[in-house]
Lab assay of single mutants.
Amino acid sequence: EPLWIRPDAPSRCTWQLGRPASESPHHHTAPAKSPKILPDILKKIGDTPMVRINKIGKKFGLKCELLAKCEFFNAGGSVKDRISLRMIEDAERDGTLKPGDTIIEPTSGNTGIGLALAAAVRGYRCIIVMPEKMSSEKVDVLRALGAEIVRTPTNARFDSPESHVGVAWRLKNEIPNSHILDQYRNASNPLAHYDTTADEILQQCDGKLDMLVASVGTGGTITGIARKLKEKCPGCRIIGVDPEGSILAEPEELNQTEQTTYEVEGIGYDFIPTVLDRTVVDKWFKSNDEEAFTFARMLIAQEGLLCGGSAGSTVAVAVKAAQELQEGQRCVVILPDSVRNYMTKFLSDRWMLQKGFLKEEDLTEKKPWWWHLRVQELGLSAPLTVLPTITCGHTIEILREKGFDQAPVVDEAGVILGMVTLGNMLSSLLAGKVQPSDQVGKVIYKQFKQIRLTDTLGRLSHILEMDHFALVVHEQIQYHSTGKSSQRQMVFGVVTAIDLLNFVAAQERDQK
C-alpha cells in the first residue's frame, strides 16, 4: 500500500453525458421521505430548503428570480454533511469501515464536522487534520463531537509532509485500522450531490432553472449537481466560483495573481482535486475576500440567511453572472454553511477592521482624538531585521541585547519573508524542534498583521487588541530589464502597544 495517494490523481470516472444510468458502476440512493420521529440526527441530513432572495437581486438590477439552496440546514450545519454520511455509508457497505475503526480526514473543517457527527452516532474514533487558518468555532464544535484535532501550517503546499493532507496520511500509516475516506478522491463525494442535492433542486424548481452558481473546494458539490442538471435540464448554465489565490478556475489566465492566501474558508485549493470535473462548468468567476464577507453580511442583514463567507462569494458572483438572465428565468445559488463557524471572524466588526474589510468610518461609535491620525505620526525608528541564514542562537542574543521581542526576517534585497519572535524561538528550542545552530528560517511564521503608514491609529489599535505587534510595510514598484514591473513589500518598522501608548501619553502631556 502506498504511503500516500495524491489528492489530485487523474480521475478514473467514466461518467458521460447521455450515458444510461443503468451502466453506472456505483451504488445510487434515492431521496427517502422522513418519518415524523427521526431514529437519529443523521436522518436530518439532506432535504434542505430552497429560499427566495428578495432584496439583493433587485438591489443589483437582476431581472431573474434568485433562489438560495440553504445547505446550513443540514444536521452539522453545512453541505459537507451529505458527503460525510455518504462516504461512511459506502465504506461500511463495501466492508472497508468496521466497528471500532478510526476515521482520519484532512479538511478545512466542515467535512470534519460532518464526519465527527456521523462518527459520534456510529461509534468510530475520528481524527481531523486541518490548517491553522480555520476558525476556532470549527475546532470547538469538533472537540465537542469527540474528534481529535491536529493543526497544520496554512501556507504548507498540499504535497508537503507538513500539509493537512501529508499529516493525515502519516497518521494513517501509524494508526492500525485507520482510514482516510479522502473527500478529494472519493466518488461518494460527487455521488452524494448527484443522487440527492441535484434531485432536490430539480424537484423544488419543478425542473425549471436557467443558471446554477456554486463555490468550489473539493469540487464534489458542483460536479455532482452539474452532471445531473446537464442530464435533466441541459439549458442550465453552470457557474463556478473560485477565490483569488486558488488555481481551480479555467482558463488558467484567471488564476494569475501574486496573491497566495485568502481568508474565506472551505473553497479554493492549490491543486485540482480528483473529484472535480471542470468540463461540466460553463464559466468560472474569481471572487475576493472583501466581496465575500460584504455579501455574507448582506445576506444575514437583508435576507435573514445566517450563512458563512463562501455563501457571500457565491452570491457576489451570482449578481454578476445572472445579469444575462431575463424576467421569468431563474438562478439558484448554493449557500454551503452557517455563520456559526465564523462568529469571531467576519461577523465581528473588530475582525473586519483588522483585516481591512471594514473602515473605521463605517462604525458610528465615538472615537478618541488620536483615532484618525496616521501611523506615520508615530515617528517610528528604523527596524531591526535579520536574514533567514542567521542562526536561532545568534538571533536570540541580538533580540535580548537590543531589547526586542520580535524581528522581521528579510532577504538580501529587503523583501519581507516573515517574522521571528523570542517566545516562538525559545519554545521551539525547548520542544526540540530546532537547535541553536539551525537557521532562523526554520522558525519563520507568517501569521502576523501588516499595516501601512497611511493607515489610521484606530486601525492599529484594533490590531493591537488581539496581537502583540504589527509590521509596518510599504510597497515598492521595481522595474526589470524586460520592461515588466513587480510590486514588493518592504519593512518600514515594527509597532507595539507600548509605542502607541507612549505616543498618546506624550501628545497629551505636551497639550497640557
Rank of each mutant, 00 (worst) to 15 (best):
I238W: 05
I239D: 02
I239S: 06
V241W: 00
V241K: 01
D242N: 04
P243R: 01
S246N: 05
I247E: 08
L248V: 03
A249I: 05
A249C: 02
P251F: 01
P251S: 09
E252K: 15
E252W: 09
N255S: 04
Q256L: 13
Q256F: 11
Q259C: 11
Q259F: 13
Q259E: 13
T261M: 12
T261Q: 11
Y262S: 01
Y262T: 10
Y262A: 05
V264S: 00
E265P: 02
G266C: 04
G266Y: 02
I267L: 03
Y269E: 06
Y269F: 05
F271S: 02
I272H: 05
P273W: 00
P273L: 00
P273R: 00
D277F: 01
R278M: 04
T279Y: 14
V281Q: 01
V281S: 05
D282S: 15
W284L: 00
W284C: 00
K286D: 01
N288I: 15
M298R: 12
L299G: 03
L299C: 04
I300Q: 04
I300C: 02
A301I: 12
A301G: 15
Q302C: 14
G304S: 00
L305S: 02
L306D: 01
C307W: 06
G308A: 04
S310P: 00
S310G: 02
A311M: 05
A311P: 06
T314R: 06
V315M: 09
V315C: 10
V315W: 02
V319L: 14
V319R: 02
V319K: 04
K320G: 09
A321P: 10
Q323D: 10
Q323S: 07
E324M: 11
L325P: 00
Q326I: 10
Q326D: 13
E327R: 15
E327A: 11
R330F: 05
C331K: 01
C331P: 01
C331R: 04
V332R: 00
V333N: 00
V333S: 07
I334G: 00
I334Y: 00
L335A: 05
P336G: 05
D337Y: 00
S338I: 07
N341Q: 05
Y342I: 03
M343L: 10
T344C: 06
D349K: 07
W351V: 00
M352L: 09
M352F: 02
Q354N: 11
K355M: 12
G356T: 06
F357P: 04
L358I: 03
K359V: 10
E361F: 12
D362V: 13
D362P: 11
L363R: 11
K367Y: 09
K367P: 12
P368K: 09
W370K: 01
W370Y: 05
W370H: 03
W371G: 10
L373P: 14
R374F: 13
R374E: 12
E377I: 08
L378C: 02
A382W: 10
A382T: 13
T385K: 08
L387P: 12
P388W: 13
T389S: 09
T391N: 15
G393W: 11
H394L: 06
H394S: 06
I396R: 04
I398G: 15
R400W: 10
E401R: 03
K402H: 13
K402F: 09
G403A: 08
D405L: 03
Q406I: 12
P408A: 10
V409K: 00
E412R: 07
E412V: 12
G414I: 13
G414Q: 11
V415T: 15
L417N: 11
T421Y: 07
G423P: 07
L426G: 13
L426H: 15
S427E: 04
S427Y: 14
S427L: 12
S428H: 03
L429W: 09
K433M: 14
P436Q: 13
S437V: 15
K442H: 13
I444P: 13
K446S: 15
K446C: 15
Q447T: 12
R452T: 05
R452K: 04
L453E: 14
L453M: 13
T454P: 12
L457G: 05
L460R: 02
H462Q: 14
E465L: 14
D467F: 14
H468I: 14
V472D: 04
E475A: 06
E475Q: 13
Q476Y: 12
I477W: 06
I477Y: 09
S481G: 13
G483I: 06
K484Y: 14
S486L: 14
S486M: 15
Q487N: 15
F492K: 12
A497M: 12
I498S: 12
D499S: 03
L500M: 13
L501H: 00
N502G: 13
F503W: 11
A505R: 04
A505F: 15
A506G: 15
E508C: 12
E508R: 10
R509Y: 09
D510R: 11
D510H: 11
